[in-house]
Design a protein around this nucleic acid. Structure first.
Lengths: 173, 173
DNA sequence: GGCGTTATGTTATACTATAACAGTCTTGAG
DNA sequence: CTCAAGACTGTTATAGTATAACATAACGCC
């Protein structure tokens, strides 16, 4: 059961992908989901979601705030945090604890408890939902009588792209 | 393979345990470890470690600072953060990302990549090192070509003690 | 004892997040 | 249509977490 190097499951978006598609898909999914749930994806919330999706690297609340302002929107920290709170509640984004930042959810709609692979170099973050991890954790917790409510699983390291680059990466000084 | 309820592995300290023993053991282990490594467990660092171990619930940096000051030590935030940084580097404590707080390491000395069970009620935190979890994560990451450097795994929920109490816990309003 | 290194003190400030209250917009009942 | 209730956003202030930068003190080696 050695994972073959030639079977790269979808996870990291790759340096070349058309990111506008990611954003468009995320916004479409969010629109549809909010309509179905009868909650309001307001202009502000939509713009914040769009800014979270600006890249696959987690975005800080104040970076989002900064951009909103530059684009002419009156905004203060609560403006952003409230929108983020809504998006979190709807499962449209996730908070990356180890970075105090937020990243778009790649599979909104269905309940999931996945984990994150975060590249220390380029910041790209992949959301993975591997049942083995979940069940290993559940078993482990059950054995000591712990009832799990919420999980935070964040692995830092290097994505495929940045492992390649690290060959000629840091020049020795 | 259903884990029996009657086989509680050591994990949570239990409401009744003699906590002074925990602290004494942790300080002794730290002293020994630092001596072996030729690094200095100074008075300040020792006191900060002791305060992290004040309870099995993660302690915030500013709570530690507060206590240091009340006990007559001149201290400012960097005082505490530098000590914490040292203790982290030596593997004597861990940072709980989801709480922005620090907890003593129960098995310092050997390299380990465990995970944490954190009670949302009493705050008690157990450090667990389950090879199934580690290997599940490693496999999962390897399949997408990700090289893991550091892992943050924090499960929030209810410890055995607080599950019992929750029967008469929150009164319905 | 002098000297380089490591540790701590001190001041200021950056970054992250929320409380509290005011004003505005939306929506549905009548 | 109008108005009232609730939802959303604006605004100000402040709490909580963390680090930069520089000064001073302690340690350990020669």
């Amino acid at each position: 059961m050695i994972p073959s190097i030639s079977s790269p499951k979808i996870a990291f978006a790759g340096a070349d992908h058309d990111h506008r598609r990611c954003v468009a898909a995320a916004l479409a999914a969010a629109t549809e989901l909010c309509a179905r749930r009868g909650v309001r994806l307001t202009e502000l919330r939509r713009r914040v979601l769009e800014l979270v999706w600006r890249s696959h690297a987690p975005q800080g609340a104040y970076a989002i705030l900064e951009t909103l302002r530059r684009r002419g929107r009156r905004a203060a920290p609560p403006t952003v945090y409230r929108a983020l709170e809504f998006l979190l509640a709807q499962g449209l984004i996730h908070r990356i604890e180890s970075a105090s930042a937020f990243v778009g959810c790649t599979t909104p709609g269905r309940p999931h408890a996945g984990h994150f692979l975060i590249c220390s170099d380029c910041g790209a973050t992949a959301e993975v939902d591997d049942s083995r991890v979940g069940s290993a954790l559940r078993d482990s917790a059950a054995e000591v009588g712990f009832r799990v409510e919420r999980q935070t699983i964040e692995l830092s390291g290097y994505c495929p792209d940045c492992q390649d680059e690290s060959l000629d990466g840091e020049p020795s000084d």
